[in-house]
Design a protein around this nucleic acid. Structure first.
Lengths: 111, 111
DNA sequence: AGCCTACACGTAGAAAGTCTACATGTAGAC
DNA sequence: GTCTACATGTAGACTTTCTACGTGTAGGCT
């Protein structure tokens, strides 16, 4: 997967993965991999700064926890973030429709 | 439409628009707008440099023409560009499927 | 003890391409 | 003579991702 293509979609991916439950960075990376069918390998150098950015903006909040002697910073969606996720979803739908129609190549719909 | 989202997809858009017929830069911008239903306004500062880049890589070739007293540089797909367009299309399909499934929000399929 | 892998967070600096803003010029309508 | 559409182009800012590195714990294996 061409890394450049992700630009501008990271926020949506991260918010989406945090929709159901709070997760820490490492788990977020794993969730991204899993949900994408193993295709998405987002490097830590991308995820951690992005999470901090999203927290700074107010879409996420975080707190530290220690589990099994290891420190984790767990992120959760704020109300603002939840709202933003809706926006990201509809933005994605529009984006994907537009690109698809210019390319004359739409992807298969999901069940 | 968030401009950043286009990053990494410009090549596909430009090659796609040139698939059926050669066009000059200004006409390409109009074609992009038209095919996208008026949503895509790609600035000249994006398109012209991108076209030159694609020509440098070998996906496009160009020649000057004068029509109605105005100079145009007309771009056409090379064989290499045509092949690349196929690659861009399948890359887009994969990308859009992956993002869609992580977001749990696929776009509508095109007829 | 020593090594390796998985877990876990983080930063610095490079890289790349798009965007904004500007610069230039013709043709034709009003 | 002014405005809009047509037409191409560059310079520099901007944003964000990526690569590469640094730090440290836990647990298994030999």
């Amino acid at each position: 997967m061409n890394p450049d293509a992700l630009r501008g979609h990271m926020d949506a991916l991260l918010l989406s993965v945090l929709e159901d439950e709070p997760l820490h960075g490492y788990a977020i990376i794993e969730a991204l991999q899993e949900r994408s069918g193993g295709v998405l390998s987002v490097p830590t150098g991308t995820v951690y700064p992005a999470l901090r950015r999203l927290e700074r903006i107010g879409y996420l909040s975080s707190e530290w926890a220690t589990v099994g002697g290891r420190k984790r910073r767990t992120y959760r969606l704020t109300e603002s973030g939840r709202k933003q996720l809706q926006g990201e979803r509809s933005a994605w739908r529009e984006f994907s429709t537009v690109i698809g129609s210019v390319l004359r190549a739409e992807s298969a719909a999901l069940g």
